[in-house]
Computed example of a mutant assay.
Amino acid sequence: MNKIFRLSLLGLTLLSPFAIAESVTEFDGPYVITPAPAQTTAYWVCDSKLKTTAIVSQQVNRPAHCGDLPEVILSDDLKQVMPDTYSEIKKVVALSDVHGQYDVLITLLKNQQIIDNKGKWAFGEGHMVMTGDIFDRGHQVNEVLWFMYQLDQQAREAGGMVHLLMGNHEQMVLGGDLRYVHQRYDVAAKLIDRPYDKLYGADTEIGQWLRSKNTIIKINDVLYMHGGISSEWISRELTLAKANSLYRQHIGTEKKVLKEDDLLNFLFYGNGPTWYRGYFSKEFTEPELDTILSYFNVKRIVVGHTSQERVLGLFHNKVIAVDSSIKNGQSGELLLIENNALTRGLYDGSRQTL
């Protein structure tokens, strides 16, 4: 390569990341936006050009010659706020921190027979918990979101449930903190003429769906959240219902406003459930954990957020870490709980007792 050309290309890369993104043929979408009541439009990036389609009878069909982007049926039921506590659930699968790694997610779920070979729900009446952080870092965030949206519908139809919990990166993106967004999404933001966070705003289908979700849930005798529950929660005498309500109410609130309110600052930052990493510190003790478990009347807590090489049990499996580094785009694991048995579901489809 000519030396001058190489230097020019280097300068272009350093000065304008979007210029490089434009040089790659891009397919992305749909972004379903409701600009006015009863008027819903789907926006698509097809061969790096913007196209739109009208939505008829809740069906979202992609334009011709627009790759293999998802076609979906919208559902108002999915945007209803669901309970945060469940009992007598016979089987649960949990995983975390996908960060836009759609291909790894699909392979893991297929190999563990959570979905079938066509990518459809195959877990029957079981519950699936994704403990946050679909957004940021990876290049297939929108694909993961629409897949989870469809899986949510399929699970309910089968008598099961998908719980998509809010992680710190969902809070960051929906609050306008875009530091970790993959460069690929500059294309859609520019063509649709919306900042990336507004592609998931309160006037969008995925945005409304996400804003209906809980941040912490209890299934049987297990508590699930992204980061962890600290002892500070107990001193504040918080309940799941109150915390989940505050999270939904303030998901798009400016960081400055959140920081100025003592309770909101705790919930959204620091030792709050979406950021806390205390279980992995040398200072944290089992007696402190037992006090937290007793407060919620549970036997264990399942968290993501703090990356591991595998699904990992701590404190005699009273804490289970399910962030198995899917974000690296190479492999991952999930946790299966059935008949009180704890099992690691490995990427190759095999299983091991935790």
Rank of each mutant, 00 (worst) to 15 (best):
S8D: 13
L9C: 10
L10G: 04
F18G: 12
A19L: 09
E22N: 07
V24A: 14
F27G: 07
F27A: 08
T34N: 14
A36C: 11
A38P: 05
Y43M: 03
Y43L: 15
Y43Q: 07
W44F: 04
C46W: 03
S48K: 08
A54I: 08
H65T: 15
D68H: 15
D76L: 13
M82L: 07
S87C: 01
D97W: 06
Q101S: 13
Q101K: 05
D103S: 15
D103L: 14
D103H: 08
L109G: 09
Q112K: 01
Q113C: 14
D116L: 12
N117E: 11
W121Q: 09
E125C: 06
G126E: 08
F135P: 11
G138A: 07
N142W: 10
M148P: 00
Q150K: 12
Q154H: 03
A155C: 15
A155V: 02
R156V: 04
L165S: 01
N168T: 00
H169N: 07
R179Y: 04
Q183P: 10
Q183S: 15
R194E: 14
D197A: 11
K198C: 14
Q208T: 05
S212M: 07
K218G: 02
L223T: 03
M225I: 02
G227C: 02
E232V: 09
T239M: 03
Y247L: 05
Q249I: 07
I251A: 13
I251F: 12
V257R: 11
D261G: 09
Y279R: 02
I292S: 04
H305V: 03
Q308F: 12
R310Q: 15
F315Y: 04
G329C: 12
G332W: 07
G345S: 12
Y347R: 03
S350H: 15
Q352I: 00
